[in-house]
Design a binder for these strands. Structure first.
Length: 491
RNA sequence: GGCGCAUUCGUCUAGCGGUUAGGACACCUCCCUCUCAAGGAGGAGAUCACCGGUUCGAAUCCGGUAUGCGCUACCA
């Protein structure tokens, strides 16, 4: 590496950052951390029309959530600032002017309508679309004429007509483009804002970016950028184009694929570490078997050589599985801390959290290995919080049982549970297991009936632990209620 | 239409001239077991897009075809 590593994540604040975007940020961050370089965030707010309020904050908070800390950029500053392109307009304008005076760029007065018609005609005649260089050789008089008419021009790059541009992408290898396939693209828009092409080249140079890691969709634009570097006399950075992220239908990831905004993953209760791990594996791999990698391991092992060239489909199932792995790896305290904000959004769970945190802390471990997301914890634990259970009475009658045997089992259980002082899981098991034998029931039948009586569900955490957490009072009350239900069922 | 790139189980991927083509998710079976999870053991699933070459030998190298994706904006 010729110099120190400086990479940037340069999002455009046009909405919530989606997972593909964040994956790009992650790879940049990993690359910077791996080589002890700097990770820079630069906001590319050059499209006034598409700018969305709150987008910058959404981007930054997503980075914070995933703990992708930046060394320079919004909030933290840095000596290459400002880090908002809208505050650097002068720089781009000067660069554009320099290109014009050098003869590498020119003013174009074509109206949007003319351009549109031109394109329609090109498409109709099945010709490659592109600017027809109408204004490339305007005379002094013609220009003055347009200016007098009050037409505000754009600045276009004067692409060499012949030759080719060649470069080596760190991921794709050598790539070649003929100049003839590149039209005279716009550098400066009529509103005075630069296009991405100009702005990113100027800024990457000024900010001394060493490597540009960006999505593959930019690969075809790279020749234009190289042409600009050359015309401006800047040394270009190294390029590495990351494979795209696709939806299940193999189309470019977009809104209609659902849950593409990284914010939604936070809301659904994915752990940042799981998200980082999963995203890192989209287009990168360590070897033929390692799937679970900590942040430190990711940093230690990340390399561009192991980035793949094929687009990847975002596989939600696998993310959910991985999130479960990370949830299970949490300590009980960590799990409580992580789940708390999600429980607070649930009415009953939230109340319990406030009035009886100890109870919540006791019940949470029972669902920790059953939850795949934090958001589903409230649902999994709901029966711990409700006053009155609601379920179909016939659930109480297990396989091979009758209403009578269920009633008998419930009554006997009620009987026994009144006795003990100790209501811990072990004591409960010591009491209830023999009871099944006495009643001539399989443990599955007795426990199943009790489970429904006490939780209202057929699928729940282990019975004795659950009962122990619920407490004697609540258990007896619920069993009583279940007997009521069975009685009503008979009528 | 032009240019560029890609193509290994449904999905994420390993592989970089010699492998029974490996792993993971999802799916199925069995075990564990009070249910659900988790865990364990298995199974099914890929003629490596296709066609030709090079080679003793090709998923790996070369050419063509097909398909897909990206770019082709005063969007990034």
């Amino acid at each position: 590496m010729k110099q120190s590593v400086r990479v940037r994540y340069a999002p455009s604040p046009t909405g919530h950052p989606h997972v593909g975007n964040i994956r790009t940020a992650l790879f940049n961050w990993l690359f910077a951390r791996r080589y002890g370089g700097s990770f820079i965030v630069r906001i590319e707010d050059t499209d006034v029309a598409r700018k969305v309020k709150g987008a910058v904050e959404a981007i930054l908070s997503s980075l914070r959530w995933l703990r992708l800390d930046w060394d320079e950029g919004p909030e933290v500053g840095g000596k290459y600032g400002p880090y908002f392109q809208s505050q650097r307009l002068d720089l781009y304008r000067k660069a554009a002017e320099r290109l014009i005076s050098q003869g590498d760029a020119y003013y174009c007065y074509c109206s949007p309508q003319r351009l549109e018609e031109m394109r329609a005609e090109q498409v109709r005649r099945k010709q490659p679309p592109g600017y027809d260089r109408h204004c490339r050789n305007l005379s002094q008089e013609e220009r003055a004429q347009k200016e007098a008419e009050g037409v505000i021009p754009v600045v276009r790059f004067q692409t060499p007509l012949e030759g080719q541009v060649k470069f080596t992408d760190l991921i794709w290898g050598e790539v070649v483009f003929d100049h003839s396939t590149i039209d005279d693209f716009v550098l400066l828009k009529s509103d005075g804002y630069p296009t991405y092409h100009l702005a990113s080249v100027v800024d990457d140079h000024l900010m001394e970016i060493s490597h540009v890691l960006r999505a593959e969709e930019w690969l075809s634009s790279t020749p234009r950028h190289l042409l600009l570097y050359q015309a401006l006399g800047f040394e270009p950075p190294q390029f590495a184009h990351l494979p795209m992220l696709l939806g299940a239908d193999r189309a470019k990831l977009s809104k209609r694929h659902g849950a593409v905004s990284i914010v939604e993953y936070y809301e659904q209760g994915y752990l940042p570490e799981a998200m980082v791990n999963f995203l890192a594996l989209l287009g990168w791999s360590l070897d033929d078997k390692t799937e679970i990698l900590s942040r430190q391991e990711l940093i230690k092992n990340f390399s561009l050589e192991r980035v793949s060239r094929t687009a990847a489909i975002f596989n939600r199932d696998k993310l959910a599985w991985m999130n479960g792995v990370y949830i299970r790896s949490l300590t009980t305290d960590e799990f409580f801390d992580a789940a708390q904000p999600y429980l607070m959004t649930d009415e009953l769970a939230g109340e319990a959290l406030i009035s009886n945190e100890k109870y919540v802390r006791a019940l949470l471990p029972l669902v920790q290995e059953r939850a795949r997301t934090l958001a589903e914890v409230a649902e999994l634990t709901q029966f711990f919080f409700v006053g009155k259970l609601d379920y179909a009475p016939d659930l109480l009658i297990g396989k091979g049982m009758t209403r009578e045997s269920a009633t008998q089992a419930l009554k006997a259980g009620q009987q026994r549970l009144r006795q003990p002082e100790a209501f811990d899981a072990e004591s409960l098991e010591a009491i209830l297991r023999p009871l099944a034998v006495e009643l001539g029931l399989k443990t599955g039948q007795l426990f199943g009936t009790l489970r429904v009586a006490v939780t209202g569900r057929t699928a729940a955490p282990p019975l004795f632990q659950t009962m122990s957490v619920l407490g004697k009072e609540r258990c007896l009350r619920r069993i009583e209620a279940s007997l009521d239900r069975l009685r009503r069922l008979s009528k």
